[in-house]
Design a protein around this nucleic acid. Sequence first.
DNA 1: TATGAAAAGATAATCCC
DNA 2: GGGATTATCTTTTCATA
Lengths: 159, 159
Amino acid sequence: MPGELDRLDIKILDRLQIDASESSSEIADRVGLSQSPCWRRMQRLKDEGYVRHTVAILDREKFGESMFIFAQLKMSRLSDEDRDRFVHAIEAIPEILEAYTLFGELDVMLKVLAPNIGWYQNFTFRTLLRLPGVEDVRSTATLSELKCTHRLPLPSLPA
Amino acid sequence: MPGELDRLDIKILDRLQIDASESSSEIADRVGLSQSPCWRRMQRLKDEGYVRHTVAILDREKFGESMFIFAQLKMSRLSDEDRDRFVHAIEAIPEILEAYTLFGELDVMLKVLAPNIGWYQNFTFRTLLRLPGVEDVRSTATLSELKCTHRLPLPSLPA
DNA sequence: TATGAAAAGATAATCCC
DNA sequence: GGGATTATCTTTTCATA
């Protein structure tokens, strides 16, 4: 609901998703406000949930080799209870960074961070295929990262 | 290279990727240090590039309906120059949040944030298929998000 | 070399206009 | 929303082990 946001709010949010370590006065300068109203807006935007959290993005290459692998899962029909078990299991596996339900033939897409292909092979057989309801796994391994941002395209409000 | 990191560094990095808005004294408490050595470690970890940046993660549901779509591209053989043009084009499109080169039959995986399917259909024909070298696009639309984190699994160092 | 205490500086948070 | 003030946190310095 961007109906409650004006252009200054949008600018502030965009600054925050580019660099959340800037001070409220720096952001105030950039968006054309003075420190206290800018700080009040930042506070309100956090309180109202526009900002989910503030995190450090680490350089994964610093921790040795690793690769993202996209895994598409074919699922059997699940009871609500099994579906919950499945979601909780995914939550508990730190190498699964993202999970989405899908349109179409396959049912779930996972983004997995694997140290190497050997690790992933074990992971497929010993973890993924043992999750509740998982019938089949189709995997796509990545070679290199061309782009990776967390900056959402924000609405550019009219006058 | 985690060889230069001890367990305290790892704990600090993990706290930062969970919540980078905590003060150095809060983090110091959590990892069992006093404020200034903890601050110095945080500083060093940033200087040495373990922290790429600090960002606010926004709640995309607050900005109206949107969906992630994974697009797999089949590319023609590209000259180095065309490859650069392709990468720069991707950089400049804000709705493309991530891009990876792939093993296997298809060549590139994109993660696209689309307001709706209609927008994505236009985007496919008017943008993706006109990028340098793109011959074919195979798309997988997501229905809902089961998990989304940016927390990397960090090595748990032995004694 | 690393730590902790403490001072100096910057920023966040509140008040009043 | 802006300006000024106070509270809090960051950053530097210094003494210590």
